[in-house]
């Protein structure tokens, strides 16, 4: 073993030199999580897909305005609809990809074993989850805003023909745009919370997408009163309370929630799984 190799033979022990600077802080943990998020290729794939899907779907929705205007049944609806709803028409598909991102943010660490390194660096654990939630929210907000801006631009020619381009000085426009961003952030945090509780990618994505996407459609076929009540409180129908789209929304069976209640229900979906996740995170073996 006397061969000198360029790699490991060059060990220089860390004798008597100034101590390595190391001062943990929440800001540092947040920077670490931010870096984690951005240093994975899968993040960029998911984000790219989100932008493309939201913009593409809103373009398709806007393209169907011609047909709606020509149809005597839908034409009156069109007259009362704010153009912003067409612009953000692709948000449901965005919810799907963002939910996957939120779940993988934590389950990816469990499946690869990274969680051991993470918790060795931050043994109190909960700050990691908080930092993940913040980093995820910021990134989701940025991607949602970018998607809406792009959608606004690509749908403009089509919507202009029907005088439906959302006015940027209309409060209703910003309610829809802001509500869309809010809902996507909530969907991301919901998945992160579910992922923290379940620790498995497949399990978390299945549960998140079932609650977010599948359940409202499935329950719509059951016309029992209590089922309809539950259905109204599912994320997607509840979002209708502040995103509009009341006529064709899935909760058409009963009266809608008020906008304020809708916002609160969505906040509960975002926060409750996260809080439960924080509690079990502290107690469980990593």
């Amino acid at each position: 073993m006397s061969t000198i190799t360029a790699t490991a033979a060059a060990v220089h022990p860390t004798v008597a030199r100034p101590a390595v600077e190391a001062r943990p802080s929440f800001l540092g943990i947040l920077r670490g999580e931010w870096r984690k998020l951005l240093s994975l290729r899968s993040t960029w794939w998911v984000l790219g897909a989100t932008v493309v899907l939201i913009t593409g779907i809103s373009l398709a929705v806007a393209a169907s305005v011609d047909a709606m205007a020509a149809d005597p049944v839908t034409a009156p609806t069109l007259a009362t609809t704010n153009g912003a709803e067409f612009v953000s028409g692709g948000f449901q598909i965005g919810m799907l990809t963002i939910a996957v991102l939120g779940a993988l943010l934590i389950t990816g660490e469990y499946s690869t074993g990274m969680i051991h390194s993470t918790f060795a660096a931050v043994p109190t654990r909960v700050p990691v989850l908080l930092a993940k939630a913040i980093a995820l929210s910021v990134l989701t907000a940025a991607v949602a805003a970018l998607s809406i801006a792009l959608s606004y631009l690509v749908t403009m020619p089509q919507l202009a023909e029907h005088d439906l381009v959302p006015a940027l000085d209309d409060a209703r426009t910003w309610q829809v745009f802001g509500g869309t961003v809010y809902f996507l952030i909530a969907a991301a945090l919901f998945s992160l919370g579910v992922g923290t509780l379940l620790r498995s990618s497949a399990g978390a994505i299945t549960v998140a997408l079932t609650v977010l996407l599948l359940l409202p459609g499935v329950l719509a076929f059951i016309s029992l009163n209590w089922v309809e009540t539950i259905a109204r409180y599912l994320p997607l129908p509840a979002s209708g309370a502040f995103l509009g789209g009341s006529e064709d929304s899935l909760s058409s069976g009963g009266e809608q929630l008020t906008a304020a209640t809708g916002l609160l229900v969505i906040a509960a979906y975002a926060l409750l799984p996260l809080l439960a996740g924080a509690v079990v995170l502290r107690r469980r073996d990593a």
């Binding site: 390595v20 600077e21 190391a22 001062r23 943990p24 802080s25 540092g28 943990i29 920077r31 670490g32 999580e33 870096r35 984690k36 240093s39 994975l40 290729r41 899968s42 990816g108 660490e109 690869t112 074993g113 990274m114 969680i115 051991h116 390194s117 060795a120 660096a121 931050v122």
Partner: peptide
């Protein structure tokens, strides 16, 4: 404490340097 608990306690999608940078960030290690 520095620990090597299992060699693959690393996210496989990240580069070695990124992994170390994320760990370092938590402690503001340069």
């Amino acid at each position: 404490v520095g620990a090597l608990l299992d060699a693959k306690a690393v996210h496989t999608g990240r580069s070695a340097r990124s992994h170390l940078r994320t760990m370092a960030a938590t402690h503001n290690i340069p």
